[in-house]
Design a protein around this nucleic acid. Structure first.
Ligand SMILES: [Mn+2]
Ligand SMILES: [Mn+2]
Ligand SMILES: [Zn+2]
Ligand SMILES: [Zn+2]
Lengths: 156, 156
DNA sequence: CTTGATAATGGAAACCATTTTCAATAGGAG
DNA sequence: CTCCTATTGAAAATGGTTTCCATTATCAAG
């Protein structure tokens, strides 16, 4: 029978099952950790958070699961230049959450932004179309990051 | 006396001396290697090319020099997702050669493009201005890469 | 609810690009 | 030409990520 409260299985279960993957405690826990933060976590970060919940989950599994999630398109993997990969849930139940980044080269802070994406999308589409034709290149995604000094690092 | 032929000291000598750095064989050789290619070389690539000319130059020095060149602004350092940094001369005697990249996720090919940069610059400036104000963020540079399948990987 | 095939896991070891160490070398000002 | 010290190169260390492989757990089938 369906549960009395409104708590059905998390929306991402279907994504795993649909892909032919098993639903496991580590996977469940890792996605949960990612879905509860807006930060850009490293594999180690995820491991530590996950470890508080199930101390037996290994770092290897965290790496494997994150890679799987990236493959599935559920997670974005970024390199902000600090020598370790950063991971972030790519979508919620509602859909994609594509965005770009401001990276502070002083303190390493990373700011998500979607504000100016409308104007950007304009040029992006134009550019992608032009480049596709010019180089006969099938564009599937893009990476846009701005570097500089953040609020806190500016004034001082 | 100045040399009889038109071969003065390479234009980048001044950049080193001006920065208070010594002009050495390894540095000379490394910049030469970079200036003779339009490819995106890894440290290992540079090392191998340099090794053919002066077999005594070490990989460590290649890393150190590339880092110095990046610091000096003479070289761009990129991450195309293959686990190693890629380097490329940022300017010639004439000036900057800033550009963006198309990265083939199938074969790893990287295409430079400057063609559509005019339209891009428009939005880029707009976006940078908007973001700067909105987040009080001092933008100094940006990274733009498009991913997809190249010419060769497309048709097949 | 069992069972069984096999997908998934976790600890340890391996990988591998990059960095650090440190004694030897060489650039270039004086 | 000399001397100070920036620079170099070999070897070892680092540190994030992968690989190995024996053990465990998922879940379709009965
Ligand atoms: Mn983000
Ligand atoms: Mn390039
Ligand atoms: Zn900052
Ligand atoms: Zn290709």
């Amino acid at each position: 029978m369906p549960r009395g409260n409104g708590t059905g299985p998390p929306w991402w279960h279907g994504r795993f099952r649909g892909g032919g993957y098993r639903m496991t405690i580590p996977r469940e826990t890792i996605v949960n950790v990612l879905s509860k933060t807006s930060k850009h976590l490293s594999a180690e970060d995820v491991y530590m958070a996950v470890h508080k919940i199930h101390s037996n989950i290994g770092l290897t599994t965290v790496y494997r699961t994150l890679e799987l999630l990236v493959q599935m398109g559920l997670v974005f993997k970024f390199d902000f230049g600090d020598g370790r990969a950063r991971y972030e849930l790519s979508e919620g139940p509602k859909g994609e959450r594509h965005h770009h980044h401001l990276v502070c080269t002083s303190c390493g802070r990373v700011i998500d932004y979607t504000d100016f994406i409308d104007e950007e999308i304009e040029l992006l589409n134009q550019t992608e179309k032009g480049l596709s034709k010019k180089y006969n290149f099938n564009i599937t995604s893009h990476l846009i990051q701005f570097y500089g000094q953040c609020n806190g690092c500016n004034l001082k």
